[in-house]
Design a protein around this nucleic acid. Structure first.
Lengths: 335, 335
DNA sequence: ACTTGCAATGGAACCGGTTCCGGTTCCGCA
DNA sequence: TGCGGAACCGGAACCGGTTCCATTGCAAGT
């Protein structure tokens, strides 16, 4: 493995000049630079990342903290992050907190504060507020995607609007008896969680249009749990004419239960979700679309730009993505 | 940020001793070690990863090359990898080739050969054989999960057995007219792909039991595509009495199509898949289970052990995980 | 012709650990 | 008491880049 020194010697210049020539710094004549670059290429030179980061303190790596990686939303965000990171020539270091089990905090200590990354994105409630501010004080740009936080720059779907659009869609179709099946968030986040926001929005719409007031039900975010809950709801004689699900996964569970109980969708029951997961297309599920991969792209873009201007005012603004209604076959006027 | 030097001075020893005391190397008296460790803790010392890897050449990082991260199989493997890596105190560097778009090779060059990782796991057809051998020559332990390869240590489901079990299950129930709906792999892998193996196993079983020979159909691995194909198949009068799907995702598409066409499962049609995705439970899909997270755990364990004994014979063996049949409600004797 | 000024370059320090190598200290044993 | 050897420790080199600072060379300005 050739070292910078070898390149320099072969090109007849000093290490200093070779370094400048290769890193693109100025203060090198075009001819010298060209010569150094060619020699480096010929020798198959590849700068040692370790040496560079020791010297500069820059890792060209961004860390991602995620509650888990095998769920659609998280996976999609991660995909967007990887894509953007690649474009900006950064590596991504993955911390799957779900994989850490108990003691995520300790890991946070051990790994994150070691200066291995120069930017960090946390997906939803991966970290508590204290950690976030601590990190920010450390000078590492931190951003959150999936839920608004007061402690860091954040990116997420406008959950209020999403909840409202979902409910309003059914109201416009003529429904007056709706039920909201919220999907549970595992951990209490800083602010009102996505789930809570969607729920509140639903209640607002309910009140505004004088709908029948049914208590909101909450289920874990799994097809299984949603399915079980939906069976209970749909089996009753006074079931609602429409269900606003907090998530597509929950909505799919409802669809499944409806099918098994012989409740026809959308003739007898309307169902709407939030997310627009791939399966939603095949199932003809009407839903509120969000694009997590885009969130991932944007959060990286922000981090890169924040890296470019250190010492600036901490940016704690929040980007609210507009939800878009996608009408498919699972919603119709009530019977 | 305190440096090792600070710790050494505070503890009244040399850098060398401090280093030994903290890294657990021997040649340090218990009392000295204890003193150094305490001062380090008091000062909040945290060794610089960059400096350590420059000095030792060890990164304590393993790289993961995956075709994409937002599919169940890949996500689950990644989860297992993250879990195991954490237990072994290693970081994981993620390369989402799907995010790289064209030019994955170039990225491979730029990133992988830079010595940023001391072990690499590739998920299925992330890399071509040439790259794998090149990597292995570099002295980095490389392992593949998801498909057997002749060029590296590999871990995967025993696809032959999986395909056989699926078909045999239906044969045992009395079916004689089956169709195999294979799920397509995007790229030509080294050896016969999982898809091909499952298909071959199906054909073997067909021949053995003298089943009606229907040409195998292949669809992209998406619910959408499987759904469309299944509609075509099930609409015909001479539809088979059972469908062996290459994947749960495909099987789910079949289930959906059957439902829409009014074909009752399992009374009129049996469906079996492979994977046992979470949704399979709710849908009552009979399937062949595999546990990708376990594959991820194992591949990391192997890499760690390979790291422990350099210069040993290259291990290119293959671990075949035994598939397990999970019977749910989507299979029954033919009408 | 003689500064003045700037671009190009090289020498050497530095980033923060690890480790080789040689020097003490201290013990057991003759 | 003297000696060998092991355990413990410190000095210094080293990993491979980046960057500060001083030096050189050359063109422009007066």
């Amino acid at each position: 493995m050739p070292r910078l020194d070898d390149v320099a010697r072969a090109a007849g210049v000093s290490k200093a000049t070779a370094s400048r020539a290769l890193s693109g710094a100025d203060g090198v004549s075009p001819t010298t630079r060209e010569k150094v670059q060619r020699t480096a290429a010929d020798l198959g030179f590849r700068a040692s990342g370790a040496a560079r980061r020791l010297a500069t303190g820059v890792t060209r790596t961004i860390g991602v903290l995620t509650p888990s990686v095998d769920r659609w939303y998280f996976g999609s965000v991660l995909h967007g992050i990887a894509h953007a990171a690649d474009r900006h020539e950064h590596d991504v270091l993955l911390y799957d907190l779900g994989a850490f089990g108990r003691g995520g905090h300790e890991k946070f200590e051990r790994f994150m504060l070691r200066g291995e990354v120069d930017g960090l994105v946390t997906i939803t409630w991966s970290l508590v507020g204290g950690d976030l501010t601590r990190l920010a004080e450390l000078g590492v740009p931190v951003a959150t995607v999936g839920e608004p936080t007061p402690h860091s720059r954040s990116f997420s779907l406008d959950d209020d609007a999403a909840g409202e659009q979902a409910a309003e869609h059914l109201v416009r179709l003529g429904h007056t008896d709706l039920l909201h099946l919220a999907s549970e968030t595992e951990v209490q986040p800083f602010d009102a969680s996505s789930s809570d926001r969607r729920k509140r929005a639903f209640e607002l719409v309910s009140a505004r249009h004088g709908l029948r007031m049914r208590p909101v039900q909450t289920v874990p975010t799994t097809l299984e749990a949603a399915h079980a809950a939906a069976r209970g709801i749909l089996a009753r004689a006074d079931r609602p004419t429409g269900i606003v699900a907090g998530t597509d996964e929950v909505a799919l569970g409802v669809l499944l239960a409806a099918h098994q109980l012989g409740v026809r969708v959308p003739e007898e029951l309307s169902v709407i979700g939030v997310d627009d997961v791939p399966a939603a297309t095949a199932f003809g599920l009407t839903t509120i679309r969000q694009d997590p991969a885009q969130h991932g792209e944007d959060v990286v873009a922000w981090i890169i730009s924040a890296l470019g201007e250190p010492e600036s005012e901490p940016d704690r603004s929040h980007t609210n993505y507009a939800p878009v209604l996608v009408v498919r076959g699972s919603t119709a006027p009530p019977p």
